[in-house]
Design a protein around this nucleic acid. Sequence first.
DNA 1: AGCGAACGAGACAACGTTGTCATCGACTGT
DNA 2: ACAGTCGATGACAACGTTGTCTCGTTCGCT
Lengths: 343, 343
Amino acid sequence: MSLREPGGRRPTMRDVAARAQVSFKTVSRVVNDEGGVSPPLERRVRKAIDELDFRPNVGARILRRSDRRTASIGLLLEDVANPFSAAVQRAVEDEAEHRGVVVYSASLDEDPARERALAKAFGARNVDGLLLVPAGDDQSHLAAELRAGTAIVCVDREANNLPVDSVVTTNEIGAAEGVRHLAAAGHRRIAFLGDRTTIATARQRYVGYEEALRGLGLSVDPALVVRDVRDAGVADGAVTALLGRPDPPTAFFTAQNLVTVGAVRALRRLGREHAVALVGFDDFLLADLLRPGVTVVAQDPTAIGRIAAGLLFARIDGDTSPPQRRLVPTTLIRRGSGEIAPD
Amino acid sequence: MSLREPGGRRPTMRDVAARAQVSFKTVSRVVNDEGGVSPPLERRVRKAIDELDFRPNVGARILRRSDRRTASIGLLLEDVANPFSAAVQRAVEDEAEHRGVVVYSASLDEDPARERALAKAFGARNVDGLLLVPAGDDQSHLAAELRAGTAIVCVDREANNLPVDSVVTTNEIGAAEGVRHLAAAGHRRIAFLGDRTTIATARQRYVGYEEALRGLGLSVDPALVVRDVRDAGVADGAVTALLGRPDPPTAFFTAQNLVTVGAVRALRRLGREHAVALVGFDDFLLADLLRPGVTVVAQDPTAIGRIAAGLLFARIDGDTSPPQRRLVPTTLIRRGSGEIAPD
DNA sequence: AGCGAACGAGACAACGTTGTCATCGACTGT
DNA sequence: ACAGTCGATGACAACGTTGTCTCGTTCGCT
């Protein structure tokens, strides 16, 4: 199989034509339903196609076709293993399959170098469009793709230095709502735990936290703010440390799903899960089955994926209106942990 | 953008050649590091490539190349939104990226028609290999792909009527271990809740359940067996119904992750979670944070994905040894729910 | 019957690349 | 100085398909 031995050759239109005793152009006409082929000939050709299990070579077709469409798109996510990314991918797949478009996918792990390498790899394969969760703070390297006619839509975050559509969660508003919800339960010392500050959404959620506090006439205590929390373990440690302070927070706002999980673990270990309030950003499976249930500001990754795919296909179909930013709202889901009052 | 207007044309080797004042064949030599190009010419060519941001057209390259490799594979999963599938995909992506191979992915939702359609779509794009979680009980339609030289490896389930490698969990052994674990805690009436019987793994896990009971000298009570449970809601209902019987089970073995989640919900609602034992097949996030923690027979989706990708690339690289079946063992993780004794 | 339109079918070029072969100039050894 | 060699470069075909053009037949109309 290494060098695709003689037997391992796919039949071509010439093979079909020989078997059906017609010219290969006639086969092309039948395959593409161009019409202008008499019924008897068409029957012969279709029979030959079936017998040989012929499938047109997509590569050659694209090469020749004038519109140059490959009916493929590239999907560059943060990490498919994260439920948020997985839900986005599933929504995109459904929209794509529906249109007969295939999807390349890859995880970037927040690495700008991978973003560049994979966008390049997909571009070289002439994808019609690219759906991208930007990693890093400069997407200008994609300008050439854009010029070459590749549609690009950013998902979950806006692009930097690149005029493209984006579909994002209302991060500031949602975070502010979560924080206000904690304040409404009586909390004044609300800690913030956020993801890496290199990630725009993490910064926006922090801004929402600050704004909410300010709007409530509360001051932001830097001692209660821990940013650049990169995983559940670090979150666990941060919660433990904060609760060990002389003047500990009475509530936590955790700005990312893994951070929330880490906080739940810490509260459990300390036996404080019914005493310290918690609101997390982004929902997760089983959050309702924990005791107490975890109150979250839920995002809607399925809607994000669906809308992003819709925009992308509109661009591919020729929409040249100015870049737009579509906002997807969050929903506060009360489950118990966010309704705990301070001591 | 619709018909890719004049500006939207990618530069070709001819464009580069014109700018560098060489023949386009020389450009090809430089691009492929073939050697035999003098340093000054090479410099000129590389400069032109940079200035035009030229990228070779992968489609054309594949069409012409003698080895016919596309450096792409197709991944056909059950559903990326399911954590098991997502973990497999992530492992496959990592192996692929490492080799400079891009990955098409799609979810089949257990639909044999989608399996056929998507395998065909990927095949027409000449993927070098196909990683497949078989949907339905006949994969013979893939024989033509195999003949055409496409490597195929099945993941999580074996193929039917197709001589290909597969990588599967030790379903029978794992299920039997879970059931024996419940019996060791003193249970005699252990219910079985399983996924659709059209799915081979669901059948194997049931066999493991039966074998374990028989090995323990216990009889299989058909009233305690509910198969074809297709989602968490149905599982919830089944648990509720079983516990409402005059002679209810004292323990549950749930043979799939969503089924387990449904069972947990039901036990919670009935307030029986500390009274009725539960062991689930397949681990899930936060299972350790529930009260009681959910004891599971954990699979290793990352290992499955990694091994499957390894086998696939070996086949692509020319391995023609007979098809093999690789087994990935399970691990029993005790967390509390499986250690509850009967009343 | 004669003529043009309409249509079925094939010949051929082209897409952007790689593989094969030819050409040309310079360098080697005697 | 001259045949032989070698290295660099280019011309050209080919991959499998679609688009354009041409050709030949049939059909309807006068």
